[in-house]
Nucleic acid binder design. Structure first.
Lengths: 195, 195, 195, 195
DNA sequence: AATGAATGAGTCTTCATTCAT
DNA sequence: TATGAATGAAGACTCATTCAT
């Protein structure tokens, strides 16, 4: 009961902060803004989080591990690697790209407040182990060393996030759909998979 | 009569700020920091720049237009489109990637303080017009619509910048070399160009 | 739970600021001065007032409305218009003139920070409605149009305040007493009232 | 020749400053504003005036002594005291009230930067010596002591200036004409003079 | 002599965090 | 336990005046 109420407050702080951090940036969002938006007293913010940094950290960590969990769950249920790749593109990516606030915060603050390299390494490893067996049939990827593969994954992953964010926040002539389309075609062409 | 504005001071402010903004971020760099690092008095900072924002803006604008000028110059001297593409990869990219401070600031602040979409659109247009004629011989690119091409360019461009930055600032197992290698191979495979 | 805003602190800030603004002027009084004089920390000033301007504004508004309230209260208890006029001269004016700091701030800052014309209009209306019935017996006032009456009230009101202020702050050979004497005699002569 | 040019610059500085001080106030007008408005270099301002304060001081002193000179000149040419009084009301006052910028600066800054009491004392003396002989025929004034007379002059003088200024700068329902009308009627009634 | 860049003490204000109640 | 007033170091920026050129 009390627990339930607590969870709601914690969630409210996180949700509000996430929106604000994404919209105004971490430094332009004051604890006071969070207080105003949530309607909670300042003191309460500090009973749930030790400081402002911890709020971003938790937003990033929970947001990321949530994505990761879903991906792992989906992968577990997938039969073939082809299926995994499809899930990656058709479920994981759309879900990630649907959470623009998370992407914005990830790109802007993850380096400062979390060990982003560990997250990316882990994700890259997961994808790599999925793609590798399929790469033999790829004109492109079977030439790639592991390091090059990792580089490729990073470029695609960070490039997609950054592009989608920019596409949404500015008047660029490119949309998230165009980006997804490009990714699907790239995979189709290189991995002989049809979406 | 009376002193003239000192180009050296202006340059020192820009150079110092660029390093500091890149290392500590825009918000964590105070005018005081710039004062300490340059050795100039506060007032002098403000005779060269109207405020802190203008400093970032100039760093980005001048950094970018410098890059752009060199690219245009190189393109002008290039004979074929193949040559242009090589220049893009062998000169423009290394130069961009060599200026990690600029990349960091570009990724972190360009959206807030400059019209980044205009810059990217212009660059994309330039590259697009170079690649398009070559795309016919590409298995991949000749299937792409213009929008997909743009999306691809954005993903690669932002992805490269972000990856190199992350590679340098964290303990990632991927290096700038790996990234460049991936790019060259991707072009080789898709454009039938040999580096 | 948690402390409540302390009325004493608010009053101390107002009182100190009033004295300082009056003595040194609004622009020559720094928040630092107020801090030094009250002994309160800067931050505390800003928990009670949003900025320096608000402090003057409140000094003026509260000072004026205090005066107004007392006048209205006194008028309510007055039987005749003659009595009202006496109260105006014997209670309201001395009270106003006794608060030289308020007068000084009123004259210097009220135009910039408050709607002084509304205050004066309201006061003029109040006095006008008191004087009008008595004006018939006045050689002077019964010739006056309403606009001229208003002009007269303004000239006397502002003239009195300005004169008293100047009399006190400089080595003028005129005192507040002389000014009050002049006012009483003027009313006696024109309204056939004896003080 | 050179002298002529110098005079123009000096006058330009004074004229521009007068307008700015009146519009924005002394503290809200920066030397930089004066530089921008006159188009003169900062250094030049300081070859004509030793500092900002001297500019106000000169504006007030010259403005005032100009008024005084004209009044004395007019008085010298006047035959009777009645004529002098008419000149005071029909020439001096309109001229003073026509220079609202001067009035504004006079009211706001004269106490701080000049010996306003000397100016007023001198003017009062001049008017007093004119009015005194006429006062015998006045119901009102022949009862007044010298001090009361002085008080009256101050109240009227400061009251007129302050009222006109307020009338012009705010949405008060009183105009400069109403004020002049009141003054003329007051004199007519008390001094038996017809305008 | 004319100029305008140089100067830095001083301005107002903010804000994450604490802790008295 | 919940609260929100209290805090003060630190922030960005200003501006009258000087003085090197």
């Amino acid at each position: 009961m009390a627990r339930n109420k607590d969870e709601k407050k914690r969630a409210a702080i996180l949700q509000t902060s996430k929106t604000l951090f994404s919209q105004k940036g971490f430094y332009n969002t004051s604890i006071s803004d969070i207080v105003d938006e949530t309607g909670l007293p300042v003191g309460t913010i500090y009973t749930y989080f030790t400081n402002k940094e911890e709020i971003v950290r938790v937003i990033i960590e929970e947001g990321w591990s949530n994505l990761e969990l879903r991906l792992e769950e989906a992968f577990r249920n997938a039969g073939s690697n082809e299926e995994k790749l499809k899930i990656l593109v058709d479920e994981f990516l759309p879900e990630l790209l649907g959470d623009l606030d998370l992407i914005t915060i990830l790109l802007a603050e993850a380096v400062s407040y979390t060990k982003i390299e560990e997250k990316i390494d882990k994700l890259a490893e997961l994808i790599f182990s999925t793609i590798k067996p399929m790469a033999k049939s790829s004109q492109l990827f079977n030439k790639f060393s592991k390091n090059t593969m990792y580089a490729a994954l990073m470029v695609y992953f960070l490039g997609i996030m950054n592009s989608v964010k920019l596409a949404e926040s500015s008047s660029l002539s490119v949309s998230a759909n165009d980006i997804m389309h490009f990714i699907r075609q790239t995979i189709e062409n290189n991995m002989h998979i049809t979406f």
